[in-house]
Nucleic acid binder design. Structure first.
Lengths: 149, 149
DNA sequence: CCGGATCCGTTTCGATACTG
DNA sequence: CAGTATCGAAACGGATCCGG
């Protein structure tokens, strides 16, 4: 993956852009944690269940910022701290996340919150709007139940 | 990625299963080529626009077969040749592909077939049913216009 | 020719240790 | 707390080789 953004290869199929951003094991999980779990800080994102290494997390966050999917911002409660927030582009990934979750649910025996996934699938616009509102309000309540530690 | 399937880590969130299969730069593109372009053979899949190396292609095909997303079958027209086909599990990825394509279309200036993507989004069940039927008929007509060579 | 397998140099990943 | 530095392991990419 070239660091130079000029080296963008011609992407004839619309899936390429997605794969160039999310074609690794972590980027999509980071977006999920931001979107569904209300994680916002480096430490929270690093302490998720999947135990991403700190250097990888830092690099992935940089890449996601460069891709315009998330943004770095001062924490509203403590200006010294940094927090990461989904951009509009990132929020618009909700239907993708929902479709993936639904596929996984259908093919992997797993007890997981079907209700939320179905809601996103049936009314994606309404869910994205809600997500945007929650995000504007800086609500960090998780949409998914957090795994118990 | 451990070769040993026993080493499956507990996947609390339904996205993990997807990422473990498609968390690389090629697997999803291979599924797209099978689903949307009517590619079925090793040579066709290797000659796509993205120029995957032959060893990587072979490994990814093995992994996708092991994951139950595609299957190896004798070519119906020439029994000596091999062809790859989506399984039910693979066909069910259509809504995921559509959601990804739609997201990319909305955020990357690209002239691409909106019509198909919107159809999948609005009537995913109908599209999956059609895909299944085409697949049963062994029709290899591409759903997407092929990039000119 | 088709469907890979093997070898090898390069790039990326991942765990741990460390720093301002 | 929010990252860097380091270093071994794994993945990638190109070229070549091989059995049918």
């Amino acid at each position: 993956m070239p660091a130079n953004p000029e080296t963008t290869r011609r992407s004839l199929c619309p899936i390429n852009a997605f794969v160039e951003i999310f074609g690794d094991r972590w980027s999509l999980l980071i977006v999920r944690d931001l979107m569904m779990r209300g994680y916002t800080t480096y430490t929270q994102l690093g302490s998720g269940e999947e135990r991403i290494a700190t250097n990888i997390l830092a690099e992935k966050l940089d890449r996601l910022v460069a891709a315009g999917v998330i943004e770095r911002a001062p924490d509203p409660e403590d200006g010294r701290r940094v927090c990461y927030r989904l951009t509009e582009k990132g929020i618009d990934l909700a239907p993708v996340i929902a479709a993936i979750a639904r596929w996984s649910l259908g093919h992997e025996p797993n007890r997981t919150p079907r209700r939320l996934v179905e809601r996103i699938r049936k009314q994606p616009e309404a869910f994205v709007a809600e997500l945007r509102r929650r995000w504007a309000e800086r609500s960090t309540d998780p949409l998914l139940p957090l795994p118990k530690a």
